[in-house]
């Protein structure tokens, strides 16, 4: 069971306090988009064996959504960051590059 640090309230807690919210940084297209764009927004997900950016919510705690970069196989957590950003912070990208270098 994962150990997760909520970036909002700072608590490091076990997974049972959190709710998983699936893949992060999916852009919601506007009302004028094509059917294919809308379908992709609804249904296309990466599901990688490796680095995954995902959304989590501290459901039993402070209630806040946040982002987490995690390796789906080793379960290593590269970092957590705020929910209201469209892209992972550079320091987390750097950490991932360092930790996943061959």
């Amino acid at each position: 069971m994962l150990l997760i640090q909520c970036p909002a309230c700072g608590v490091e807690a076990e997974e049972t306090e959190f709710a998983a919210g699936g893949e992060a940084h999916i852009v919601r297209p506007g009302p004028g988009c094509t059917d294919a764009e809308w379908a992709s927004y609804l249904f296309d997900r990466k599901n990688p064996r490796g680095v995954h950016y995902e959304r989590w919510r501290h459901a039993f705690g402070c209630g806040k959504w946040f982002h987490m970069a995690r390796h789906t196989h080793t379960l290593e957590v590269f970092g957590v960051y705020a929910a209201d950003v469209l892209d992972p912070p550079q320091e987390i990208k750097d950490r991932i590059a360092e930790r996943t270098a061959p």
């Binding site: 919210g21 919601r28 959304r55 919510r57 459901a59 209630g63 806040k64 959504w65 929910a83 209201d84």
Partner: peptide
């Protein structure tokens, strides 16, 4: 309630 908060925190912040 969680649904509203989700949209407020993650999309229409």
């Amino acid at each position: 309630h969680a649904w509203m908060e989700e949209w407020l925190q993650t999309e229409w912040f």
